[in-house]
Amino acid sequence: MSARDTVLATIRSSLGVTGSETPRRTAIEARLSLHPRGVVPKRGDRPAPSRMKLFQTMVEGAHGTTVELASPERVPAAVADYLRSKNLPMAVRRGSDPRLDAIPWQNERALGVSSGHSDGSDLVSVSHALGAVAETGTLVLVSGPDNPTTLNFLPDHHLVVVDAKDIAGDYETVWDAIRARFGAGKMPRTVNWITGPSRSADIEQTHLLGAHGPRSLHVLIVGEP
């Protein structure tokens, strides 16, 4: 008997079932296809402007920073401001997400912008989030040809652009958006929920930022909520 068969047979004998009972099969198929919502905290259930404020408060509570921008045209200047405020070289690495491609980077002459994944030598990266969750100040990023995962983890500073209208109240709303985009039962290779910059408390329970991933996380919120 293969290991697979042994494990499944032991489970079935412990549960006193054969595995072919129709009511059990129906129960799991229903749950998997209907994916009912459970208890969803009311915290994020509020009008869009207030939801955006909650998102900002929660990001800041997780040691991230945020800035509101009226339109995507303002992104290059805001990125340049950030780099200057941290005394960083004027260079960023970004993915080729269409929304990042559409940004007029050339407006900020001094800013060097390259695209592609990171080999570990980039200090600053810019990503575009699929959405965000106000409930806990969590950004949701998905991998794909235009969105290298390495940009989320290797650089010291991670700048994330998110459309204000994509800030949801709860995680469940974002799962619906992902199903709408990738299909039922399907997921992109990686979905990254990011809540603040990398941190560790493994030395005497002292909280330190920048453990292995980015030392700082800066969120650029674009447009009206």
């Binding site: 290779r189 990686t190 929920w193 809540t195």
Partner: peptide, 24 residues
């Protein structure tokens, strides 16, 4: 666990690198 609202990184992984993926 740690008394955080949410951990910093929650990562959902499904399968290996896809066609066209620059990393993974």
């Amino acid at each position: 666990a740690t008394g955080q609202e949410m951990s910093v990184y929650t990562t959902f992984s499904t399968g290996p690198r896809r066609a066209g993926d620059p990393d993974g």
